[in-house]
């Protein structure tokens, strides 16, 4: 390896590591904060690595009235959102990937436009409606609105996923004795499954992270972000740090699982068709 290549490599890795540092350090800090004993937060200067690790802060956070409940609520809402979103959106994604039909382009554009809607614009009137429909302050209500927000993504992502499964495979199955539905179930679905799982996790994360709608739509049945947001002004700092940590961890985990699909999904999302 000659000197120039070596120097180039050094710069590459230096730059890459620097960026990695920038991404990771705040996450590390949050983790540290979450396991720092409560009283350490009042030390000055605060030791960056806590003098001893303790579950104090976490315990306090989880034992705070409403938090554990909101955690469960968040999981439920995210699961419902996931089911609703894929149930409604995946067929549309399939249609977009498989058929050329009149209005296809208009539909695609419509989907893209919906992504321009500010959450506030949806959440406020829907909340007003939900009060009338008896869906106010229910988990289903939150899931419904989260579905609305995740649906455009789901359609775009599943379109990409089904485009990745060759149409000829399904046709082959059809010539071998399958009905259209059978061909889908036996060939397209198994092959799309990993991608669909990634889409599902992505949907889960969207719901898990959403705070605006969840907050204005609930009073008793808060989700975790809603709970933390509404308690911000009245909670001690360590409560907030623990909250941050709790919200981040599952999301990071999911991102790790779907990492290989991210680019595929966005590649499909930005690719033509």
């Amino acid at each position: 390896m000659n000197f120039r290549v070596l120097r180039r490599q050094t710069w590459l890795y230096l730059g890459a590591s620097l960026a990695a540092f920038w991404v990771l350090v705040p996450i590390v800090f949050t983790a540290l904060a979450a396991f720092t004993p409560k009283q350490d937060f009042y030390l000055w200067p605060k030791p960056v690595v806590p003098r001893r690790f303790s579950l104090d802060t976490m315990r306090f956070f989880l034992n705070t009235h409403g938090v554990l409940n909101s955690l469960l609520n968040s999981v439920w809402v995210a699961l419902m959102t996931l089911g609703l979103t894929l149930g409604v959106g995946a067929p549309a994604g399939y249609a977009m990937a498989r058929f050329l039909f009149r209005g296809r382009e208009a539909f695609r554009l419509g989907i893209l436009v919906t992504r321009m809607f500010p959450t506030a614009l949806l959440a406020i009137p829907i909340t007003v409606n939900f009060i009338r429909w008896g869906l106010y302050d229910t988990l289903l209500g939150v899931a419904l609105i989260h579905t609305a927000m995740a649906l455009p993504f789901a359609v775009i992502i599943t379109t990409g996923i089904f485009l990745g499964v060759s149409k000829e495979l399904e046709e082959a199955a059809m010539t071998l004795g399958c009905s259209r539905l059978g061909a889908f179930a036996r060939v397209a679905l198994p092959l799309a499954l990993p991608g669909l799982a990634a889409a599902a996790m992505f949907t889960f994360v969207i719901s898990w992270n959403e705070v605006f709608a969840a907050t204005i739509l609930t009073v008793q049945n808060r989700t975790l972000p809603a709970q933390v947001l509404t308690m911000l002004r009245v909670s001690p700092l360590y409560f907030r740090f623990a909250g941050g940590f709790f919200m981040i961890m599952p999301a990071l985990l999911f991102m790790f699982f779907i990492r290989r699909y991210l680019f595929h999904m966005w590649g499909g999302a930005t690719a033509e068709r």
Binding site: S166, E168, L169, E171, A172, A173, M174, T175, L176, G177, C178, S179, R180, V187, L191
Partner: peptide
């Protein structure tokens, strides 16, 4: 539908189920 025509087909891309 194709399933009920008594045909079999070989595709250009083979379409062998992966």
């Amino acid at each position: 539908p194709p399933a009920r025509r008594g045909i079999a087909m070989v595709f250009q891309s083979y379409a062998v189920f992966p």
